[in-house]
Amino acid sequence: MKNFLDKDFLLDTETAVRLYENAVEGLPIFDFHCHLDPQEVWENKSYENITQLWLGGDHYKWRTM
């Protein structure tokens, strides 16, 4: 049985794995609609609790609440 969040997460076929490993594995991730601070991702920031992670700095969630 395959582990849930292993290194090939969402890569369901051998072709997908080869494409990922040979074409994009080393490239940076660009997400133009991300609610995460890129600096915090780059620095691998740790949070004291899940509330800080989930609500910190995301104005859309605060507006909804």
Score class of each variant (00 low, 15 high):
E21Y: 06
L11I: 07
H33T: 11
V24T: 15
K61H: 12
L53V: 01
L11D: 04
K61V: 14
L36Y: 00
F4T: 08
V41M: 00
T51Q: 13
D37L: 04
D6F: 09
W62M: 10
E40H: 09
E48P: 01
L27H: 05
L53K: 00
V41I: 15
Q52T: 00
T51G: 10
L27S: 08
G56Q: 09
E25V: 12
Y20Q: 13
E40Q: 06
K61W: 08
Y47K: 03
Q52S: 12
E25H: 07
V41C: 03
E25I: 10
M65P: 05
R63A: 13
I29W: 02
E25R: 14
H59M: 11
V24H: 08
P38I: 00
F4H: 14
A23Q: 12
K2S: 10
P38M: 03
I29Q: 03
L53C: 09
D8T: 11
N49G: 03
A23E: 15
V24A: 07
D37V: 00
Q39N: 08
F9W: 04
H59D: 09
E25C: 09
P38E: 02
E14F: 10
L5P: 00
E21F: 04
I50H: 14
V17R: 15
H59R: 06
V24G: 08
E21N: 15
E14T: 03
K61E: 11
Y20H: 13
